[in-house]
Design a protein around this nucleic acid. Structure first.
Lengths: 332, 332
DNA sequence: CTGAAAGCGCTAACAG
DNA sequence: CTGTTAGCGCTTTCAG
């Protein structure tokens, strides 16, 4: 195995010197000649220092944990891409953990991450968590994304959900809808989103939503289930505020299976502007925000946190994107 | 920080003893009383050994690299789930790397993985690769999934593509189609798949496909592009063999946008039986294989490889699943 | 500008 | 059954 020592021997210098060259420590305190010689040898033999060894010494692994509930959300690829983009710049490697909405497994993951000595964690919380999680979290540098667990005061990157909710509801109200159903996911800042809905309703002189359903996950399948529950609550609704684009896609699928026309019989709006919202038969109106940017900023935040820099939360302001699923509805 | 030494002091034994208890080495060579005492202390203080430290000593990191071209393929979540399921059983952590189809980045990843001293790699190759990759690969335990790079003789978990191709083509021929177009992805055992198509064609007394298009990626967008190219080659085709379910979804989308009816004007069959094939307006006929199992077996193979056990390649036999996108076509 | 020496936290001979 | 010792590959004082 190629070690520092061997490289040092080959270059005729001490391991200290090689280390210094490779890490650019004590800049300019190594003669240019020596530096060049060392670099040449390193290049020649293709030496790369052992990450575990330096981790042990430096108490820094250059690894971060990514803890997410699922890989199946249609926005995950973009978020991860954003994370990896910035992570690569800082030489950070990503340890991937998927909780599958299992809160005891989630807790175990944080304990494992602790023994792995990762430098930090990017965490997308799920609705439910173990009480002990708070403690497990407090020992690490953690950045929260897209969600607000509210279980600890963690640095976070989120979307302005109140605004998003407001924009979505206002749009439907503007289109003339008065009986509106909503599908909420407790966990994605749902209270703020809910508040946004109500602000729009109030402005339109309305009191309440006509139907309201909660869903545990925000996948396509959940949209189908939620759709039926919504119609049970109020068969007269003409528009639906879905918890995500995936859910909206499920809702549209279910609606059309029932013989309903989208948007003429029921208008639907999603949340996120994920790939799925363009790929369906009926393109989905949605609230847009850049998932890639969320990932990028989260990683920047984490790096800052690791370097003990001052950090402040990041909140993205989403925009309304109108597509087929909510067009020409009651105005027609 | 909690170390072995501290735990040893607390328990009034040597570090060696604690290590032995924790690793179950020299079984029965530690008195039950001592073992219990140590375990109690460990539990009490919540000690977990440092992964980097033991990695340095044992030359084993209990980490594996997962190198894939993209997270956006609709089958990725399931494959990864399968991998993680088995990985968790063996206490393996997953270092995630996404190549984004960038071959020089792919090479760099393997070099990085080398310095990370991961115990092994699960690799899903992309169509193009750097020549130096072979060398970078040869130094590690690598399991290949779903693809065949053909650049090295690596243990692999794959689908019987010839059979898949045969089943798909035979199905379309059985439905009465004679002018069939195909979308191939060079990289997914495409030659075998192609051979399968031809075996079916020969059996039906036909010589060739009517149209043939190659695609670099197997995403929804590629299906749209490919559809148009296919129709340019032969406007008379009545059926399409898509490279994947994602591609099939794109094809169907494009076809319907052109005013064509699926399956009546053009039948489509995908490959993989991913979630997307059920979620569209028109459910997609496809060739099924279990993605979760692919992941599980790949991880088992990797673990065996790491333990220097004998391994042999795994080939799954896929099945035909008929859905709307290829039903009632020319027989109607 | 460079090197010798110590030690990160752990495990594996080797002794008792 | 248990402990002592050495050292994994690296970085970091400290001393030239």
């Amino acid at each position: 195995m190629l070690t520092l020592k061997k490289v040092a021997e080959l270059a005729g210098v001490s391991t200290t010197t090689v280390s210094r060259v490779l890490n650019n420590t004590y800049r300019n305190k190594v003669s240019e000649a020596t530096r060049q010689r060392v670099l040449r040898i390193v290049e020649e033999v293709g030496y790369r220092s052992s990450v575990p060894a330096r981790a042990l010494r430096q108490k820094r692994t250059y690894q971060y944990g990514l803890v997410i509930p699922s890989l199946a959300f249609s926005y995950m690829p973009e978020v991860v891409q954003g994370l990896q983009l910035v992570a690569a710049q800082y030489d950070y490697a990503c340890l991937l953990y998927i909780t599958q909405e299992d809160s005891s497994y989630e807790l175990e993951i944080f304990r494992v991450l602790n023994s792995l000595h990762v430098d930090g964690v990017v965490w997308m919380p799920q609705p439910h968590h173990e009480p002990n999680l708070v403690q497990a979290l407090s020992q690490k540098k953690v950045v929260e994304i897209l969600n607000r667990s509210g279980i600890a005061n963690l640095p976070s990157v989120t979307i302005d959900q109140e605004l998003g909710g407001y924009l979505a509801a206002k749009h439907l109200l503007d289109m003339g809808h008065r009986r509106i159903g909503a599908i909420l996911h407790p966990g994605i800042h749902w209270k703020q989103r809910f508040a946004g809905y109500h602000r729009a309703l109030r402005e339109a002189g309305q009191e309440n939503l006509s139907a309201l359903v909660y869903t545990d996950m925000v996948l396509w399948q959940n949209g189908i289930t939620a759709f039926h529950e919504l119609y049970q609550q109020d068969p007269g609704i003409t528009a639906i505020l879905a918890a995500s684009d995936d859910v909206a896609a499920g809702v549209i699928y279910a609606a059309r299976h029932q013989g309903l026309c989208v948007p003429d019989d029921v208008a639907v709006i999603g949340f996120g502007d994920n790939p799925i919202s363009r790929q369906g038969e009926v393109s989905i109106s949605t609230i847009r925000h850049s998932k890639r940017e969320v990932g990028e900023q989260a990683m920047r935040l984490l790096v800052a946190l690791i370097n003990n820099e001052e950090v402040k939360d990041i909140v993205f302001r989403p925009k309304l994107i109108v597509r087929q699923s909510s067009s020409n509805s009651l105005k027609k």
